[in-house]
Design a protein around this nucleic acid. Sequence first.
RNA 1: GUGGGUGUAGCUCAACUGGUUAGAGCAUCGGACUGUGGCUCCGAGGGUUGGGGGUUCAAGUCCCCUCACUCACCCCA
Length: 463
Amino acid sequence: MGELFKALRGTNDLLPPETQKWVFMEEAIRQKAESFGFQEIRTPIFEHTELFSRGIGEGTDITAKEMYTFTDKGGRSITLRPELTAPAVRAYLEHFPMPAARIEEIEGKKRKILLGTPPLVKWYYLGPAFRYERPQSGRYRQFHQFGVEVIGSQNPDIDLEVILLALEIFKTLNLQNLEIKLNSIGCSKCRPSYREALKKHFYPYLEQLCEDCRTHRYEKNPLRILDCKSQKCAPFLHEAPIPADYLCEECQNHFKKLQKKLTNLQVVYSLDPRLVRGLDYYTKTVFEVISSSLGAQNSICGGGRYDDLGEILGGPSVPAVGFAAGMERLILLLKDNFADSGKTSLVYAVTLGEKAEEFMLPLVFNLRKEAGDRKIKLKIERDYQNRNLGTQLKEANRLGAEFALILGENELAENKLILRNLAARQQEDLFFKQSENPKGIVEDLSNRILEKINYGKQPLYSH
RNA sequence: GUGGGUGUAGCUCAACUGGUUAGAGCAUCGGACUGUGGCUCCGAGGGUUGGGGGUUCAAGUCCCCUCACUCACCCCA
């Protein structure tokens, strides 16, 4: 061995029956998101590298060391998407007409201020993303996220809906032991003063901070020092100023409204003043859902507002909020407690000999078609290896078939087909008239078989 | 990128301090039962012990290197 190809590190083959869990989860996500009025988008797997390095932020680990970047044959720098928020906003700016804007110069920066309200979209997505990291439990190089993005409104009700949708989905997935953390990290107006306060606080201890914090976080993004887990930095975190004390009036109101509505709806959450989230684009609301049932990678969902991302990507200022959840982590939590999505009956077609196979083939196809037309949940399986009767029945049994159709030389000679109820260990002969119309025989047999196996069995019908 | 743990049949695992032909269960296939399934019994196939090198009379076992998996750090979904 050893010469065979294997899936690349950090990538996984999803095989049955595991894929059933994924389908179950995907259906739950789609169903809930649609019920909240969200619509699905699908953006490309790869984008211009620039979209991510600017959108997510140069200083973040994602862009600094985790991106799958390559140069295509046209010399462009391309990156496999490490997350889907930046692509969603890119798609929004690319496809939706914006109201007129005026260019304003604020603090040396030219900004496009919209004169009207931008279009509102409520999107959800589901798909793979890629990050070059060492894999571990709940972390892979190709992983899957689902998430939502609402672009075009700054109403805290939207923040609320986004959080509620996440919780609804987790609830239908029957996930236990979840904890919601919430914080507000301010906006472009109030964050500068908070940043300054943080820098002022950490300045005296600068030499004692860990290397990462000392060399780049302090200058580039002091908020992330709060997120640092280093022993070195820990002692200085308790006393650090918290964002709540520096929020401008608008951010304060926004945050208060959100909290009040969450409380009114009896959503249990905890405020975490040190929750800052790793990506640069967040503003105001940030939240995270963690599970105590997972290992070190216990964050199953992270999100928040990103009112500045539109501008960061060169467009006008458009308010937006969303979240992304890691589907592999949800699968880890799903275990086996997922509901079987409606039982499908199985009929196994046993054939002995070439003539029998020839006769059976159109019958099998017709049964599948008829069952579909009549909305009967039924699948038909058969033998492809010329195995003997005993083995075929054994196989039927192993697959959990309820009925077997048996056809061999003997039956053909007598113009009949055996329909065997495997559980009851009983069988009956279905005689057919040898006419010059084979199609008629197939249709007649199909009708009789479907009637017989469906007799008195409601579960075969889906609604 | 850094650290720990683990690599033996398709799967789950054995093999006392190095000791001679590496075993078992499950699965697969065949037979008992040439055309009627869930049991039972019998039998068979399958392995360069992840790969390479070294120590030794002798290596699955000890040492080095390498690869893979896994958990953790950093960070994130």
